[in-house]
């Protein structure tokens, strides 16, 4: 995919449109991270297509100086799938939120993942409907009090990572709005991965769901309540880098290095490329306070992509078939002459 690379900076990807998210919205930082990631990639600017659905995050394409499509609610995965299949040379990015991807667009979301179409899905998860002013979303925690759940929800939330792996997802990563450096790295990796990549970005809605992720992301406690996974490295976390994850029977367990004879060698080493989803499923499902919440690239497994196979199939059939144009087709099969 590498081409005669023009050297870009983040500025080249900024459109002339005024960014209209609320001051303090986490979306600003995510926009910055993507605009910083793209110059690191091998595509010329005209090859990018940013495609979104509806919601605050879905205004994103207007702020990118690339090809962009602001779709309708929930349908971005389908639109992006069509765009990528029609022209596999494009680098297609879907921008979506927790409501857009997992409520109204749930069907398209899981099927895009199942097909493994080479699109990069950026899922902004603020656990609330922001654009309609504060109703609970499919990721709102059980009991969340919102405008449509004044007495608390009685719904169990989706965990995006669990849904992605359940839909046979091959790439899942998690970041949060405040960590532009980590986000940038993940976006680059997501783009380089062939197949559907889903990046969940925990995002803060300052107006309708402020501090929803604060329990894990407050600077005070962040190191103890999160773990950043890196492929090939031990799963160690904590302010003092002394906590780690081990397998205890069929469950993950937190241990402290130096206690009960535990050494660094006992700690699990992260293998994002393991195709068996068992451990990845446990990692994406880790919830505070029982576990630290996992960040970084949790799963990254190679598999054939839909768009490549579509092209291959066409090329194979075209080489074999006697039908080269519509005239050939019209005259194929049973015909007769009237004289």
């Amino acid at each position: 995919m590498s081409e005669n690379q023009v050297k870009y900076t983040a500025k080249d990807f900024k459109s002339d449109q005024e960014v209209r998210w609320c001051p303090g919205c986490g979306d600003h930082a995510i926009l910055t991270a993507i605009q910083r990631a793209l110059p690191q990639l091998a595509y010329n600017k005209e090859r990018y297509a940013f495609i979104s659905g509806i919601g605050c995050s879905s205004r994103f394409p207007y702020y990118m100086n690339t090809y962009g499509f602001h779709g309708i609610h929930g349908r971005a995965s389908a639109i992006a799938s069509g765009t990528k299949t029609a022209n596999p040379e494009l680098s297609v990015w879907q921008i979506t939120g927790d409501g857009d991807a997992m409520a109204i667009g749930g069907n398209h979301f899981i099927h895009a993942i199942r097909r493994n179409i080479d699109i990069n899905i950026m899922l902004f998860n603020n656990e609330i409907y922001g654009l309609t002013k504060g109703q609970y979303s499919p990721t709102s925690e059980f009991g969340a009090v919102t405008k449509t759940s004044p007495f608390g929800t009685v719904e169990h939330p989706f965990h995006p990572g669990e849904l992605v792996i359940g839909a046979q997802g091959k790439f899942f990563a998690r970041s949060f709005d405040g960590n532009i450096k980590l986000s940038t790295q993940i976006f680059e990796e997501a783009s380089r991965h062939d197949g559907t990549s889903v990046v969940e970005i925990l995002q803060n809605c300052v107006i309708y769901n402020d501090k929803t992720h604060a329990a894990i992301l407050d600077k005070e406690n962040r190191d103890d309540r999160t773990i950043v996974l890196e492929h090939g490295k031990p799963m160690i976390f904590g302010k003092n880098r002394d906590k780690g994850l081990v397998l205890d029977g069929l469950k993950l367990k937190i241990v402290t290095i130096g206690e009960n004879g535990i050494t660094e060698d006992d700690i699990l080493v992260h293998d994002a490329e393991e195709s068996n989803p068992g451990l990845h499923m446990m990692l994406v499902n880790m919830q505070y306070p029982e576990y630290p919440v996992a960040f970084g690239i949790i799963r990254k497994v190679k598999a054939a992509t839909y768009d490549d196979q579509v092209v291959e199939q066409i090329e194979t059939i075209q080489a074999e078939s006697k039908i080269k144009n519509v005239d050939d087709l019209l005259n194929s099969g049973a015909t007769w002459d009237v004289e």
Partner: peptide, 26 residues
């Protein structure tokens, strides 16, 4: 396929037209 058709059997009617719109955009 011999005439280069890309056929996308979508997950539902909505995805049918939306993939087509995405392809038209492309």
């Amino acid at each position: 396929k011999d005439l280069g058709v890309k056929s996308f059997q979508a997950e539902d009617e909505i995805a049918g037209i939306c993939t087509a719109i995405g392809a038209s955009f492309a």
